[in-house]
Nucleic acid binder design. Structure first.
Length: 439
DNA sequence: AGGTTAAGCGCG
DNA sequence: AAAGCGCGCTTAACCT
């Protein structure tokens, strides 16, 4: 019976795939630039198959130890929270939390969720923590619970007994921008931003005699913005190898790069990232904790200093409205059916996606090219080196110690050379016994 | 028992 | 009215 079901499924799958082919193939023939993207996807699938089969070695005892430590601290936080609240409750239930916070303790409601419930998200808790003791406990409890339940408790159990390795699945046709996504487990959202979270990466290890190497593109999306916009000041910053956030701060604040303070650089970094996402003055104000008017002044100043970027953003919105889609450097398309919607918020959302997709998508194109070329080089010259993960702008490898010099030299060169843009592409490598040390 | 949605949060 | 792009996973709550 199982065989019959399998053969029926296989036949249906092939038949339906042929139906799809008959529809899509003529469309592909009519769109020359998309043929190149199609070829890239076919070539990438070969490299992805290899990465998935390789998997990455997980150090289970390290995770178990971390789970234990997290569990102790979480228990302690729960006791302290009950003490402050005057009663036990489920800290993991936003509903119960709302009742304790807003009904029992009378804390102010900062904002509502999409469905009208009183929000207790991180931003709200941060604000409330300024005046009350309980929110801070919740914030720590939330972050540690996340680490334990999603990572330290789960990962080791997902390693195959056969090889002690986790084999994620990469989806090649999920993210609309052309990025990969990773699932079961997702290895593209392993913590790194906090010191406690980073420790999870210590459990992504190399076998004895081997190393983990991480090679990542430097400032890839901003470089693509420079290329796409052709903005002179941004091009110059990258061509001269400047610290781009510092350079932006110098422009926006009208001072010399050496005079830029740490806070000014942080502002500029937020502005640079915000622009890639189509952020408004309202959003910039919120993330910098300043007045909307002040944020608007920074953005205006930015566009005065980088007029090419302003022109690019306007042109991209306009092109999206007339064509109904936007393209990456290599011709990958993102269709935007809501770009001319009469619904203001929906249309604005489509405009932000239109701004972002060419940059995010071009970065995705480039790292797929890198994966193809690097895998070909490994097969031809370095069969002992395995590519084991892709994290959007980063490739991770497991290598015999004897291959360290080769990899340090060859992989960034390949990654930088996959395409010639108006600015140089730069890739950096780190190595160590585990993924944390490789950064 | 199993599926879905909401809220929340991890990453680039 | 909404206000920052792209994802996947966990828990609670609710449903069949």
């Amino acid at each position: 019976m199982a065989v019959e079901r399998a053969s029926q499924y296989s036949c249906e799958d092939s038949d339906l795939t042929l139906d799809v082919h008959r529809v899509l193939w003529p469309q592909l023939q009519a769109a020359p630039r998309l043929q190149g993207i199609y070829e890239l996807e076919i070539a990438s699938s070969e490299a992805l198959y290899r990465v998935e089969r390789n998997g990455v070695l997980i150090d289970a005892p390290t995770l178990q130890q971390q789970s234990h430590e997290l569990g102790q601290r979480i228990l302690q936080l729960e006791t302290e929270a009950y003490e402050i609240a005057g009663q036990p409750f489920n800290l993991g239930s936003p509903k119960q939390l709302g009742e304790i916070f807003f009904d029992k303790l009378g804390l102010p409601v900062i904002k509502k969720t999409a469905t009208g419930a009183r929000s207790t998200d991180e931003e709200v808790l941060e604000k409330l923590a300024e005046d009350y003791p309980l929110p801070a406990k919740l914030l720590e409890h939330r972050s540690l619970s996340k680490l334990k339940s999603t990572y330290t408790d789960k990962l080791a159990g997902m390693a195959l007994p056969r090889d002690g390795r986790v084999h994620t699945h990469y989806a090649q046709a999920v993210a609309v921008t052309g990025r990969l996504s990773s699932n079961d487990p997702n290895l593209q959202n392993i913590p790194i931003r906090t010191v406690e979270g980073r420790r999870v990466r210590e459990a992504f290890v190399a076998p004895p005699g081997h190393l983990i190497a991480s090679a990542d593109y430097s400032q890839i999306e901003l470089r693509i913005m420079a290329h796409l916009s052709g903005d002179e000041a941004l091009l110059r910053a990258f061509r001269d190898g400047q610290d781009v956030h510092r350079a932006t701060a110098a422009e926006v604040f009208g001072i010399a790069p050496e005079q830029v303070s740490a806070e000014q650089r942080r502002y500029a970094k937020t502005i640079n990232f915000g622009l890639i996402y189509g952020m408004s003055s309202f959003g910039l104000a919120k993330s910098l904790g300043i007045e909307t008017k002040a944020a608007a002044a920074y953005i205006e100043r930015y566009f005065q200093r980088y007029p090419g970027v302003k022109r690019y953003m306007d042109d991209t919105r306009a092109a999206a409205k007339t064509q109904g889609y936007v393209e990456t450097v290599f011709g990958r398309r993102l269709y935007l059916p809501e770009i001319n919607s009469p619904n203001g918020p929906r249309r604005a959302g489509a405009e932000r996606a239109a701004i972002n997709a060419p940059m995010q998508g071009t970065a995705a194109d480039l790292i797929k090219m890198s994966m193809v070329q690097v895998q070909q080089a490994l097969d031809a010259q370095r069969p002992g080196v395995r590519m084991v993960m892709q994290v959007h702008d980063e490739l991770v490898f497991e290598l015999p110690e004897s291959e360290a010099d080769w990899l340090r030299e060859a992989v960034p060169a390949l990654m930088a050379g996959v395409a010639t843009l108006q600015v140089p592409l730069v890739a950096e490598v780190g190595m160590g016994r585990n993924w944390d040390q490789a950064h």
